[in-house]
Design a protein around this nucleic acid. Structure first.
Length: 578
RNA sequence: GCGCCCAUAGCUCAGCUGGAUAGAGCAUCGGACUUCUAAUCCGACGGUCGCAGGUUCGAAUCCUGCUGGGCGCGCCA
């Protein structure tokens, strides 16, 4: 099957028919073969005849008939029917469905091909600030970024995780000066428990004491100048922060580790060269004392060109400088093919400008692509930015502990789990719920954070998927035999489930190509509901023949494998019991 | 003022890049457990796709305008 995609396979056959009938060449994609809406009596439909008819000078129905007449697809579908203005309806044969499903039984990748064009990706995500506690604002970038890592790795790409820590810049003068004032040393600095409080205290002092602010500014210069005592203290702060981040990442179950920290400070040695190269290429201009790049097409409110400031009037660098140095470093030094930025939507324009400059500088081109993957905000039930009842920032760790606590409540008294298992399940369910809520709606839209909805056992939630899987595994445990290696497609619910399982590769491809985890979520939900229906209608352990039981056990296992793999690509665990 | 995004069932969301009668879940109502995990399943109810034009065989989807909301727009990152 072409890329494991039924639609593409049929599209290829349609393309072949068109070639045979009229010597017209189209790609399988251009054949526009899509799953039909339920209840229309067909599995797939070809929508190409209407638009193509005009080009070849035939009526759509006439063209559709020509395609059908020359179609070589009897191994897959029954005789296609032409309907309406020129739709070609395909119904897959039970024998083909059975044969295809059979091949999945021994396929670790469940029909998903590895990419034939592997790239080297670097993904910028999570990006917390040193000396500040992670908060609700880091949830989406961390969860979504981790999902992309998993999806791209599974697709067969090399993926470099990049945690772009906020570990440099003006706040660190204030932090280090406060460190010294409070009598911390480089060694003890890594044991400050309340980093957030520490940051706030420094901030207050900075805002209220001019003398301190003055020292803080001087300290920034020392830091950026490479003063050893300052650097040592700075490293202590970073180390302490990384402990906190690691704790969140561990609890959350994302792949980020300390080794993935490539913070702003990393680019410090490249900033001067980057600015120099931009200048050498004639892209910079001094404006109001700052060195700027003006990418074409961006204007401010006065319709004047909008700059990226690469060197402030005081000589300092900005995040624009750092981001440009990053584009330069990863494309030129590390030879990555794709740079992905999982950063909130408010920063869209900034990245568009950075990419535009990257192209002007020749760092980005057809072989070195950059893509900004923005995401919407998490809202409270009032439709405004999600905050605590007191109006404060919601801490990341509080979200996770509350999720696990609430999940424990949901799981309590459930099944025959001991305390240890209950705790593990609560974690899988609670964390899964937070991640799934984040991944299951359109990435670019805002979504409303709602504990009851995300932990609901009905509807499109991770708990429902986890439950469906646990149920399957329970049946498999109770079976007194191994699943068979033949698939029977007899009942309607059985047929629907098999078709759904065969659509996994296409669903996954759609999710990866458009960086849309919610498409995978939707597919998994449909698969779980298809299984539930099958479970109600098709007895497994009590099937009336050996063959049926063997086949249904195989289908059950296949469904479980699909759910588990799908969930794992989302970064969500699937407990064996629930 | 300029730019970007959003508006679909009472609520929360899909709608596969222009296809057929716009789909799920929740809520409401009605059914199904001496049967493999009922945390489930089956059915019913529910729509002026924000408004108005346009493009064409065909628009929730593309274009223009408007209304209502969110965000961004020079030395924080």
């Amino acid at each position: 099957m072409l890329h494991g995609d039924i639609g593409l396979e049929l599209g290829q056959r349609v393309a072949g028919a068109l070639k045979a009938a009229l010597d017209v060449e189209i790609t399988p994609e251009q054949a526009i073969v899509r799953p039909s809406a339920p209840g229309r009596g067909a599995d797939y439909q070809c929508n190409a005849a209407m638009s193509l008819g005009k080009q070849v000078g035939k009526s759509p129905r006439e063209l559709a008939q020509l395609i059908v007449d020359h179609l070589d697809a009897a191994d897959i579908v029954t005789t296609p029917e032409i309907a309406g203005p020129g739709f070609i309806n395909f119904t897959l044969t039970e024998s083909w469905l059975a044969a295809e499903a059979r091949t999945l039984l021994s396929d670790d990748r469940l029909g998903v091909p590895a990419t034939d064009d592997p790239g080297r990706y670097v993904i910028d995500y999570s990006s917390p600030n040193v000396a500040k506690e992670m908060h609700i604002g880091h949830v989406r970038t961390t969860v979504i970024g981790d999902c992309f890592v998993r999806l791209l790795e599974f697709a067969g790409h090399e993926v470099i995780r990049r945690n772009h820590l906020g570990d440099w810049g003006t706040p660190f003068g204030m932090l280090i000066e406060h460190l010294l004032d409070e009598g911390w040393t480089a060694e003890s600095a890594s044991s400050i428990a309340d980093l957030d409080g520490f940051y706030k205290a420094a901030r207050v002092k900075f805002d209220s004491e001019p003398e301190f602010a003055e020292r803080a500014r001087a300290r920034v210069v020392k830091l950026q100048g490479g003063d050893e005592q300052t650097l040592t203290l700075w490293r202590g702060l970073v180390a302490e922060s990384e402990k906190h981040f690691a704790e969140i990442y561990r609890l959350l179950g994302v792949k980020l580790t300390k080794e993935d920290s490539i913070g702003e400070s990393f680019y410090n040695p490249f900033l001067a060269d980057t600015v120099e190269e931009l200048t050498a290429k004639g892209l910079t201009k001094i404006s109001d004392g700052a060195l700027c790049v003006f990418p074409p097409g961006f204007v401010n409110r006065e319709k004047e060109p909008l700059p990226i400031i690469v060197r402030k009037s005081d000589g300092g660098a900005t995040y624009g400088t750092t981001d440009l140095a990053g584009v330069r470093y990863w494309t030129q030094e590390r030879k990555v093919t794709d740079l992905l930025y999982v950063v909130g939507l408010p920063q869209q324009q900034h990245f568009q400008m950075v990419f535009a400059v990257g192209e002007q500088a020749g760092w980005l081109d057809g072989d070195h692509r950059a893509r900004y993957l923005g995401f919407g905000s998490i809202l409270g039930s009032d439709g405004k930015m999600f905050r605590t009842r007191a109006g404060g920032t919601v801490k990341f760790i509080d979200v996770l502990t509350e999720a696990v606590d609430r999940a424990a409540e949901v799981v309590r008294g459930r099944a025959e789990l001991d305390a240890q298992e209950q705790a593990e399940v609560a974690r899988a369910v609670g964390i899964g719920a937070v991640k799934y809520a984040d991944l299951s709606t359109d990435r670019e839209k805002d979504y409303v954070f709602d504990w009851d909805k995300m932990l609901a056992t009905e509807g499109n939630t991770s708990v429902y998927l986890q439950y469906a899987n646990a149920r399957i595994l329970s049946v498999l445990r109770k079976a007194e035999r191994e699943p068979g290696d033949e698939i029977l497609v007899e009942q309607a619910a059985e047929r629907a489930l098999v078709l759904k399982l065969l659509q996994f590769p296409a669903a996954l491809a759609g999710s990866v190509e458009t960086y849309a985890p919610h498409k995978l979520c939707g597919y998994l939900y449909e698969t779980a509901t298809a299984f539930s229906s099958f479970y109600e209608n098709c007895p497994i352990l009590k099937a009336d023949t050996e063959e049926r039981q063997a086949s249904r056990l195989a289908l059950a296992r296949l469904t479980s494998r699909t759910l588990v793999l799908g969930l794992s690509l989302l970064g969500i665990d699937a407990p064996t019991r629930l």
